[in-house]
Nucleic acid binder design. Sequence first.
DNA 1: TTGTTATTTCTATATTTCTAGAAATATGAA
DNA 2: TTCATATTTCTAGAAATATAGAAATAACAA
Lengths: 106, 106
Amino acid sequence: MNKSEAIQALTALAHDTRLDVFRLLVEAGPEGLAIGNIGEMLDVPAATLNHHMTLMKQAGLVKCMRAGRKLIHSADYDRMDAMLSYLTKNCCQGSACFPGKGSAHD
Amino acid sequence: MNKSEAIQALTALAHDTRLDVFRLLVEAGPEGLAIGNIGEMLDVPAATLNHHMTLMKQAGLVKCMRAGRKLIHSADYDRMDAMLSYLTKNCCQGSACFPGKGSAHD
DNA sequence: TTGTTATTTCTATATTTCTAGAAATATGAA
DNA sequence: TTCATATTTCTAGAAATATAGAAATAACAA
């Protein structure tokens, strides 16, 4: 992951609705959720939600597969991991900012 | 750290210049850097840089102390750690998104 | 006090992001 | 094909963020 990808992922999470969506998708696990379901749960109009999902997909934090007429969205844990890893490696010089704690991402 | 604080910290890092600033401050260590020095290093006008520093200070990622006529800014590692911890705990359900890796933030 | 350096505030403009209704498109069922 | 459901695209206005020049403020030195 490079810098602009990391910024994209950070931006994707730095929004109230999008953070809610990501958490829902993490809870939902690999089976994921359809946009319609997410929209109901969070009470967000389809067009607005679609805009946010597009950003998250572009950032790579959300994957999407069609199942019939539903589009199943799920969280990409690896991408999230890569972003956290980028932050600790490139912004915190390894574990430098976590003295005595070590890193989850060696 | 609560959700809106986490979003504030994510937003603070999700910007090209601000991410550069944070990295510079991490490299500089506890001695920190004056805004003027940062502005020279990154070639950003003082007013623009001040705007970004204000956001980062509000997000708690940057601390600031006066030393003579210079204002020394330094990275707040604890805040960064708190944000990463919030993300893994609240968005990834503990170590759920890092199978077999454990967490740096227990 | 006067001057110099460092930073912030004021201000305005430019740009980007957010929101969501309406229309279009895609899928599958009857 | 016709209909219902699911999602996306189009569109436009609203809101937020970014940029930076100029003026104001703060600290210290001479």
